[in-house]
Nucleic acid binder design. Structure first.
Lengths: 245, 245
DNA sequence: CGCGAGTTTGAGAGAAGTCAAAGTGTGTGG
DNA sequence: CCACACACTTTGACTTCTCTCAAACTCGCG
């Protein structure tokens, strides 16, 4: 907006945005963290399809997404993948590995993606040195458990249209929290991946999106989505309220 | 086993068993914990149907089950309950509330139940004083997240018989870890609650149990179950392996 | 003893899965 | 630069699993 050199501005602004939304920023920006070592967190770039870690890998770090989009998958006995969660800018990966020190899941980039790595030894040191940081990580872990509960309700109790509507609103809301439009975004996931995430087949996902589009609630073009009627979508996503007499 | 007075022995033995299996024992038995205050953890008794906490309650403590059986439920907009998890001796409740300091779920005893309470302020103090304890709780939180992933796979990808078989084996295994028979136990949950937990109707749960009994894999009498053929049940619980050519 | 909650079982309906085919888009190699 | 290959998507027709509705049965408890 000001008369600055384009490249510099763009880079700095992007860094600010990414770090402001980052759930692990306390592991970087704390004075103590900076004092403990002049180590800007190591960054790692991934291209679409590349794995950040796989099931069975020893956990080397906690990861925060700087840019791009990843999915984490459970690896079933037959080798099949099941999508457990997706991650955008500011999200953390690797929380499920703290216990066993081994990743029980696989994380794959769906985009050109960049993540920050906080080596676990360093994370441990920081948490021991500063209780606020330990408490913060506990908060992230606890929050994830609470979110898992909501997802279980969705998988166990909601119809296909409810799950799809909820997914679109959730993804939009997450972009919204990061300062982007909650009404227009890229799904990044294929229909098959969305289906896996929601416990549906890709045909059902496709049909449901088409039906929403036919009702003029959304506009879909490939993986680009615009939410035209958030109110209707939200009504659709709610579990039917059983009216007491 | 020795010639001691009955009552004393029984109580002491029960206490030992319960504490040995308790995920929060480090919050009690650590030398430091004992030094910090002569406070044996406060215990609370609940009768069947009584709530330990409800959605919206401020979190007062972490809870460990000493005896009995509890369920935790999500409370849906219409007031309906959805069973998210069940808890037996040694299990921890309240992990999903650390973030918001408010319980997002409801916990209800299904039995005559006794729980130990670790007030959160005390838990915080202990974790700040001893990193090992903080690490241990992080492990519990992380483990719960990993387990949630497995449950999501079950809810999203498994058939009704697979879910029911998996549920029976899981409950048995959990009793087994505590030194009880993994093959003969009390479900404690009603068919309706099992259905809610597994994302099925109670009729489907009932029919599936009947079918398992007809195959001689299990023996059911009300809520008492004996697993007669763990191998067959386990085969039934596995996702079908898609054979690569 | 009888009520009520819980369970079993049956019959029919409906939502989502499966199978199939055609359309769309994208990247690569000729 | 075009053409082909391939992965993804859409849509249709049919199947099947689970839900829904209904009725009878069991059991524990007041």
């Amino acid at each position: 907006m000001g008369p600055h050199r384009k490249k510099g501005i763009a880079f700095s602004a992007q860094t600010q945005v990414a770090c402001a939304a980052c759930a692990l920023r306390k592991f970087c920006t704390t004075p103590l963290a900076e004092a403990m070592g002049p180590s800007p967190p190591h960054r790692r770039r991934l291209h679409a399809g590349e794995a950040l870690f796989t099931r069975g890998d020893p956990q080397a770090a906690l990861y925060a997404v700087r840019a791009g989009f990843l999915k984490t998958c459970a690896v079933l006995p037959g080798g099949e993948r099941h999508v457990l969660s997706y991650h955008i800018m500011g999200d953390v990966l690797g929380l499920d590995a703290l216990h066993a020190r081994i990743h029980p899941t696989e994380a794959v980039a769906l985009n050109s993606t960049e993540v920050c790595e906080i080596p676990i030894e360093r994370a441990q040191q920081l948490m021991e040195a500063q209780h606020e940081i330990a408490t913060h990580l506990r908060g992230l872990l606890s929050e994830r458990i609470a979110q898992s509960g909501e997802r279980m309700v969705a998988l166990a109790a909601l119809s296909a249209p409810q799950r799809v509507a909820g997914f679109l609103l959730d993804l939009g809301a997450r972009w919204g929290l990061r300062g982007y439009s909650p009404h227009e975004f890229d799904l990044c996931l294929t229909r098959k991946e969305i289906g896996s995430y929601l416990g549906l087949t890709f045909e059902t996902v496709s049909r449901t999106l088409s039906r929403f589009a036919a009702q003029r609630w959304i506009t879909v073009a490939g993986r680009e989505v615009r939410i035209d009627d958030p109110v209707a979508l939200h009504a659709q996503s709610e579990p039917r309220i059983s009216q007491p007499a």
